[in-house]
Design a protein around this nucleic acid. Structure first.
Lengths: 244, 244
DNA sequence: CGCACATTTGAGATACGTCAATCGATGTGG
DNA sequence: CCACATCGATTGACGTATCTCAAATGTGCG
């Protein structure tokens, strides 16, 4: 059976039946390639397709009236893209590629069908969405009540943890893949100030940097100062009935 | 048939069958009363029950290590409380009462059962949750990229719109029901600065205030300066199959 | 080899926070 | 019914985290 990156990810958390796996495969029949910088869907576009990210790294963001950008989430392989498009007539967020990426587009009705015919599977998708919701609230707390340094640290930890989930090989050292301006747009800061915060983290021996590669030198202290929680690690799917 | 405030709310968006209404009623068989200031669930409590707010006004929030508080969302009658508890073993947010309130507690398995036996209904609940997700991302954008004045204005608009959905009588004048400290904890500001922003909004003839009552004097200008979107108004549930 | 873009650093401006005091409303015990 | 405590709103003076503007220094890519 061909592999579904979505099924692989869900399978890390709950066992999936053959029927469920093949239902998931139907979501990944097509492919589209995006170069870094490309836009997949634009805010206010009529909602048409949903996507699953197969490889690369993407982000969703909004542009405010004054032209500034707020990045809402980083998107990694196995994530569902534009789930909100399921319930809005116009998509509420722009989605763009942070690195060369491959997505699998599928039509909204396919997800509806899955909701009605594979309720267990749909419940798993909802569970992941809740984990993501928790990440959004963490970000709200970070933006509202933590320092610039903490917010930058939290982005570093977040990206590292998401990358490690895809490649358990990754330890404390990884390629960030974000410009300082992108970090700033995610944390509500200026690129200039992000730079100063990175330098400070480096001066305090919390991280090391060379040419795009970041090494976390004291993860414990970093995590505490950033008030960081890995939400995917806290998921509890034991309430799901066994696979059909 | 007795009324379910949850069914009433969903019924504003999609027609519900008799069977669906009675399934929803099972979620509201019990009641618990809370006084203003009372805590319903506390962050890190083991996840047990979910709730539907029947009357009053509540909030969810987190307390950061330095003792500061970030309010994540305001909760109004008909809202599901602690949905994240469905998928986490420990609840990620504290929920407390902003006004004397009545909630209907129900056990997690009841929601699971609903997910599996009433997929259409569950899809509606997911849709509402997506609307709420959009409100969270709006708040992220507000915290990250808008001025203190805009954030305060956006809270005013948000509360007014939510209240109006419950009582269409409400026009531009309403009882806010929040202290300035609570507004600050929602917007990432200090109570002192919230006060100054309210005064500025008043000086600019955007709002009027007397003793807890707020009147929006220029909703258009207020909405633009706050970059506010009513997410519930943008919901599109036409993709749902007809009621069983 | 040169151009676009990201990073880095400095100097000065500002939005928002902190601290502190006053005032009014509400409630409570004596 | 009053004295007093409490809590929220208000305002002023001052401190500081972060932004803005500007220029220099890399750095990958055609």
């Amino acid at each position: 059976m061909p592999s579904s990156c979505f099924a692989e990810r869900l399978g890390d958390f709950v066992p999936l039946s053959t029927g469920e796996r093949s239902a998931l495969l139907r979501l990944e029949e097509r492919e589209r390639t995006l170069r870094r910088g490309a836009t997949l869907v634009r805010e206010n576009d009529p909602a048409g397709e949903l996507f699953i990210l197969r490889s690369g790294m993407m982000m969703s963001y909004v542009i405010l009236p004054d032209g500034s950008r707020q990045i809402l989430r980083f998107i990694f392989p196995g994530d569902v893209i534009a789930l909100p498009a399921l319930v809005f007539s116009r998509v509420p967020e722009t989605v763009g590629a942070l690195a060369d990426s491959v997505v699998c587009p599928f039509d909204r009705p396919l997800m509806t069908q899955l909701a009605l015919e594979q309720p267990r599977l749909f419940a798993v998708i909802v569970a992941f969405d809740q984990a993501e919701r928790a990440m959004l609230t963490d970000r709200i707390a970070a933006l509202g009540r933590t320092s610039a340094k903490a917010r930058v640290a939290s982005v570093l930890l977040d990206v590292r943890n998401r990358l490690r989930r895809l490649d358990p090989t990754i330890d404390n050292s990884f390629i960030l893949g974000l410009t300082q301006e992108e970090i700033g747009d995610a944390t509500g800061l200026t690129a200039v100030h992000v730079n100063r915060m990175l330098r400070q983290l480096e001066d305090e021996a919390l991280i090391r940097r060379d040419s795009g590669r970041v090494t976390l030198l004291d993860e414990g202290r970093l995590g505490r100062s950033a008030n960081y929680t890995d939400r995917l690690a806290g998921l509890d799917l034991s309430w799901l009935p066994p696979a059909a």
